[in-house]
Design a protein around this nucleic acid. Structure first.
Length: 435
RNA sequence: GGAACGGUGGCAGAGCGGACAAAUGCACCCGCCUUGAAAGCGGGAGGCCGCAAGGCCCGGGGGUUCGAAUCCCUCCCGUUCCGCCA
């Protein structure tokens, strides 16, 4: 949520910042919010004044009664009652306005960072680094889609996954399953120097999913467990961001670095039928997320740190990759500034988004009511949050199977994963490990 | 799922229709004392909205009342016991 105070103090700057998202709808929402805020404050002032009168009268009633002046007390009670009715009307009006304003504020997106490149769609996202590790050419044995290689090796069984759970679910087997887990272990171990590992719940409340920005606007993208009022998390960002929701943190604890492995669930409502083969787009996948809670000043430093940590993981695997920056027109609702890491998959002949690193400024923290307090200073401040996929398993898994496929159809396991593969350095047909 | 008891400031905990933003203790901050510290003494200090006046906040929501932390309803959460269970 953007800061309501900006609505009255800097409406023009707000409008200019949001205009960079190139959405007429957003600007219309902003104008409506400014009007609603003005009306809300006006009605609040009138309600408060009436309340103050009622409070004062009630105090006098108490005094008169104690003094034994029943008649006088009853006269004041009558006046107080009438005022109370009026206050009730004002309060109802206030609630209606406030509710409408809140609903609107939950949908107005975050302000883009001044340095975020301008653009209208993903076609305008500039490549800011790379390609790295991209060979001049790929051999024919690398131009095989991972689902074919994986089927031949017996490490992917999507037919049975679909039988069990329906379309867009996957199942890895043998060393394929081990490889998934190895990637998670690798991502966690490489960041354990600075990040506390969390194993969060995978089901969260509506309030929790609202804090990060998925609700109310993107309800269709999430799996809901309606009977219990719970939602499946689309990313560990959701529980991690809300870990300290509603709390006031001591500034000395910041920046706070957290990481978590979790399954991630996505309905992929808008993309049914797309990328349905293999592991490119699935309803459930494994991911390791890294996240930081910071002051606004620390946020600027933390963004490159998270990006370089995510990059180091991909780099360490030896996969061809590049980094793109997200332009203002393609920036997600909650995002202030954002970068994607893409890995090249020669079998699919596609750049796959495998990581997204973002700074949310105070947008999520305000929704989560996540604040910090500086010792010796009055008042509290809204924190900043940042996060990034350290490693999203399925696409990296696919890229490994395609890039490191050998002429004989086997797949070489990147050296950094050897410690997690029970000795396997290669995946051979029928999922049998060669040693 | 059933029963009982709870939910008050950073923590513990009193208050149970009016003078309550709320006792008290611990923790915290600033002085004094001390070579330094502890102890002791004195003082300070919650959050949110508002330019301010003022208003709001005792788990959430609703109700009763001139007036609610206090009474009623409802939901949520916690603890313990029972049931079920990896």
């Amino acid at each position: 949520m953007i800061d309501v105070r900006l609505l009255r103090t800097q409406p023009d700057a707000l409008r200019a910042a949001l205009a960079r998202r190139h959405s007429a709808e957003v600007l219309a929402q902003l104008d409506r919010a400014i009007v609603l805020d003005g009306r809300t404050r006006d009605i609040t002032a009138r309600r408060d004044a009436t309340r103050a009168e009622v409070n004062e009268l009630s105090k006098q009633v108490g005094q008169l009664r104690r003094a034994g002046d029943t008649e006088g007390a009853e006269v004041l009670q009558k006046r107080s009652r009438a005022l109370g009715d009026h206050e009730q009307l004002l309060d109802n009006e206030h609630d209606v306005l406030q509710r409408e304003l809140n609903q609107l504020l939950l949908r107005i997106p975050n302000l883009p960072h001044p340095d975020a490149p301008d653009g209208t769609s993903d076609g305008d996202n500039p490549v800011i680094k790379g390609p790295v590790h991209l060979p001049d050419s790929f051999a024919d044995h690398q131009r095989v889609p991972h689902w074919e290689t994986a089927a031949a090796l017996g490490i992917l069984d999507n037919e049975r996954a679909t039988k069990i759970s329906g379309a867009m679910f996957t199942m890895q087997r043998g060393l394929g399953a081990t490889l998934s887990r190895a990637l998670c272990q690798y991502a966690l171990d490489r960041n354990a120097d600075a990040f506390e590992e969390i194993r969060p719940p995978s089901l969260v409340t509506t309030a929790t999913l609202t804090a990060t920005g998925q609700l109310p606007k993107f309800a269709d993208d999430a799996f809901a467990i309606e009977r219990d009022g719970l939602w499946c998390i689309p990313t560990a960002e959701v529980p991690l961001t809300s870990l300290y929701a509603g709390e006031v943190l001591d500034a000395e604890l910041l920046p706070m670095r957290l990481m978590a492995y979790s399954p991630s669930y996505r309905r992929e409502a808008g993309s049914a039928g797309r990328d349905t083969r293999g592991m490119l787009r699935t309803h459930e996948f494994d991911k390791v997320e890294i996240l930081a809670v910071t002051t606004p000043e620390q946020g600027a430093q933390m963004l490159p740190e998270l990006l370089s940590r995510a990059e180091a993981l991909i780099d360490g695997l030896g996969l061809p990759y590049r980094i793109i920056e997200i332009c203002t027109g393609d920036l997600g609702q909650s995002h202030h500034r954002s970068f994607d890491i893409e890995v090249y998959a020669p079998g699919c002949d596609a750049w796959l988004e495998v990581s997204s690193v973002s700074w949310f400024s105070d947008y999520q923290a305000r929704r989560a009511d996540l604040r910090y307090k500086v010792a010796g200073q009055r008042g509290t401040h809204v924190a900043n949050t940042l996060n990034g996929s350290a490693l999203a398993v399925p696409r990296v898994w696919a890229a490994i199977v395609e890039n490191f496929r050998r002429p004989d159809g086997s797949v070489a396991v990147p050296a950094v994963l050897h410690p997690y593969m029970r000795g396997a350095v290669s995946i051979e047909p029928r999922g049998v490990a060669s040693r």
